[in-house]
Amino acid sequence: MGRRTSARMTAPFAASRGAHAPSLSLAGGLALVLVVLAFGAVMIGPYGLTPAQVLSALLGRGEPQAKIVVWNIRLPRVGAALIVGAALASAGACYQALFRNPLVSPDILGVSAGAGLGAVAGIFLSLPVAAIQGAAFAGGMAAVGVVMLVGALVRHADRTLTLVLLGVVVGALAGAATSLLKVMADPYDQLPAITFWLLGSLASITTRDILPALPAVALGLVPLVLLRWRINVLSLGDEEARALGIETGRTRFVVIAAATLVTASVTALAGVVGWVGLVIPHIARMLVGPGFGRLLPVSALIGAGYLLVVDTLARTIAAVEVPLGVLTAVIGAPFFVWLLARGRRGWS
Rank of each mutant, 00 (worst) to 15 (best):
V84P: 09
L214C: 09
L75I: 08
L161E: 01
V35A: 14
V276E: 13
A270F: 09
L75Q: 03
P106D: 07
A177R: 01
A136T: 07
T207R: 13
V120P: 01
G325P: 04
V147D: 04
L287M: 14
A11L: 14
I246L: 07
L125K: 02
M148Q: 12
S105M: 09
V168G: 03
L301K: 07
P212D: 11
V183M: 13
I210N: 02
P64K: 03
A257D: 03
S265N: 03
A193L: 14
D238G: 09
M43N: 01
S179W: 01
R345D: 05
P212V: 14
I246V: 15
M286W: 05
H282Y: 13
A87P: 02
L125Q: 03
G114Y: 10
Y306E: 01
P297K: 04
D158I: 11
L340P: 10
M286H: 09
L202S: 05
T316M: 04
T316F: 05
A174I: 12
F137K: 00
V150Q: 00
A19P: 00
G45F: 07
G167P: 05
N232F: 10
G167L: 10
V164C: 04
D186L: 10
G116Y: 04
A213W: 02
T328A: 12
M1K: 09
G2P: 13
Q190Y: 11
A86E: 02
A314T: 04
G29T: 14
R252C: 04
R61I: 00
A14H: 13
I317V: 15
A218W: 00
I132Q: 15
T195H: 03
G92H: 02
G325R: 04
V233M: 12
P102S: 10
L75A: 14
L24R: 10
I194Y: 05
F253H: 04
I302D: 03
G167I: 09
S265L: 07
I210Q: 00
A31K: 00
P223Q: 12
V168Q: 03
P128G: 12
T195E: 06
L234S: 04
I317H: 02
I256V: 15
S90F: 01
V129C: 01
G85L: 04
M9L: 14
P76Q: 06
G48E: 15
A31L: 15
P128Y: 09
V144L: 07
I44V: 15
R252E: 04
E63P: 00
V154I: 15
P223V: 11
G139M: 13
L295D: 12
G85H: 04
L59P: 00
